[in-house]
């Protein structure tokens, strides 16, 4: 089965969110770039399915020319083919993104991808809709939030968390599925995988930007993320003070009960 996986290049922010002076973007001068863990898991899942059933994995991203790096990262994980819908770096909204991807799939041959996987939501914009809008554009069934899936013939069974348990869906292929981290444990790229990815040819297309109904005015970092922790002490010497704080917070009681019950030996 040939599977298409959608990924998005996002800054790899560490301990602190820093914005550009105009407040329009995350300052990426000191950060690397990555894809969301959801998407990495989607690629891993696709690779595992093709390892069982045969076929290929194509990764597609809409982004700036540099997003080819993220496609190569995914090729190193075992994907076979990379497609870049190249932008001029402007932010694209979900409606335009889904339309551009649908058009590209039309050209790549829609029948070629009975299964399309997307990360559940993009790490940065968190719009939660490109996969679903794409499914509607292609007239396919879609389910999101998926933590486990099984492909059997033309049928796909998918599970997601619901209310402390799970709910199950059955979809006829071709279908679109939004995947969450935890569906698998992605492998580390192998050395041959990395070499292959480095040499791989990335297919480039250039869709035209379109305005979306949602327009960003500015970004800001939430207040309250710059306090300073009160240091209770160093090493084991801090334990009496720590116990006092835990007592004040009111979380020490269960221990006393457990001891009294004798449930904790």
């Amino acid at each position: 089965m040939d599977i298409l996986v959608l990924v998005k290049r996002v800054p790899m922010v560490g301990g602190k969110m820093v914005l550009t002076a105009d407040g329009q973007d995350v300052d990426t001068r000191l950060s690397g770039f990555t894809v969301s863990p959801h998407e990495e898991c989607a690629v891993e899942e696709a690779v595992q399915v093709t390892e069982r059933l045969g076929g290929t994995v194509t990764v597609l991203t809409l982004g700036p020319p540099e997003a080819a790096d993220q496609l190569r990262d995914m090729l190193a994980l075992g994907a076979h083919r990379g497609v870049l819908l190249e932008t001029d770096g402007r932010e694209w909204g979900p409606i335009a993104t889904a339309a551009a991807i649908a058009a590209a799939i039309g050209e790549l041959g829609p029948a070629a991808f009975p299964l399309i996987l997307a990360g559940n939501e993009a790490a940065d914009t968190g719009g939660y809709q490109v996969g679903i809008r794409l499914a509607h554009a292609l007239g396919r069934p879609c389910v999101t939030g998926i933590k486990r899936l099984e492909v059997a013939g033309d049928l796909l069974r998918a599970w997601r968390d619901y209310g402390g348990g799970q709910e199950e869906f059955e979809l006829a292929l071709p279908a679109v599925v939004g995947v969450k981290e935890g569906i698998n444990l992605p492998r580390y790229p192998s050395l041959p995988g990395r070499l292959r990815a480095k040499r791989a040819q990335i297919e480039v297309r250039k869709p035209a930007w379109q305005a979306d109904g949602l327009r960003k005015i500015a970004l800001r970092v939430p207040a309250g993320s710059a306090q300073r922790a009160r240091v209770l002490g160093h090493g084991a010497g801090a334990v009496p003070e720590l116990i006092r704080v835990l007592g004040d917070i009111g979380v020490l009681a269960p221990a006393g009960r457990a001891e009294a019950d004798g449930t904790v030996a």
């Binding site: 240091v231 160093h234 090493g235 334990v239 720590l242 704080v245």
Partner: peptide
């Protein structure tokens, strides 16, 4: 970075602090 998000902190090796706690 967590020092600017936490209310309290113990500076030290958790392998020492947690068993002592």
């Amino acid at each position: 970075p967590i020092m600017s998000r936490a209310e309290y902190a113990v500076i030290g090796d958790l392998n020492e602090v947690i068993p002592a706690l």
